[in-house]
Nucleic acid binder design. Structure first.
Lengths: 112, 112
DNA sequence: GCTGGCGTTGACATCACTGTCAAGGTTTAC
DNA sequence: GTAAACCTTGACAGTGATGTCAACGCCAGC
């Protein structure tokens, strides 16, 4: 499939896919005319990336998941490096929630 | 007081203060040599700005607070426009905390 | 064979705030 | 009187992911 279709299926843009490729997260065979050519595995990969981005990871954080899938695992979260990223992010979220709670209390006091 | 001292007292940089001025949040008398000259009121103003930035507001959001203080109120949060900003931010925080909780649950499940 | 829609690369724009540098003027301390 | 430390303005850099535009190539339908 070509880049436009992959983008649509994965809910993103061709521009974003080219960027992921530039960052080494995605690679594409080329058709004889130079067009990028993707398969179902690429679709799974991009969907994993998008899902992670949507919950607040940055692109670099998605790398272990991508590599995990490339190594043949069905879920990107099955590899130690991915687990480490998940664990770290979990701690960040807990910290952030705590911080937001403090800020919330400050605002409520201001409003009170 | 001059810009360097104000920056230090307010815990920021001269660069940032010039930026606030450029954005119309801060104004400065000029000494005969062209140097910016600030007083205690400016210090209060900048501290208010910094406090708001630190709890996640952007510069534009601080404008109502700054104007509130300029109008003579002792706290920037005393004016209706400021209250509106605080209320909006409170709702955003609540939404964000809820979202983070959902993300947290997702991650915990992944790690499961 | 033309038009429209897709693809290609490369480059610049965005947001918000700040760092940093250049090239110069001023003040302070010795 | 000179060096260090401050000030001035203006401009460019960088973050992260993506939008957007330019200038061009390819292909399908009519």
């Amino acid at each position: 499939m070509r880049i436009g279709e992959l983008a649509e299926q994965a809910g993103t843009s061709a521009r974003a896919l080219r960027y992921y490729e530039q960052q080494g997260l995605l690679s594409a065979r080329r058709s004889s005319n130079g067009y990028r050519d993707y398969d179902e595995e690429d679709l799974r990969l991009v969907r994993e990336i998008r899902a992670l981005l949507e919950i607040g990871f940055n692109l670099e954080d998605t790398r272990p998941f991508v590599e995990c899938i490339r190594e043949g695992h069905s879920s990107g979260a099955e590899c130690p490096a991915s687990v480490e990223v998940l664990t770290r992010r979990l701690a960040e979220i807990d910290d952030y929630i705590a911080r937001l709670r403090r800020i919330r209390a400050t605002i409520v006091k201001e409003l009170g």
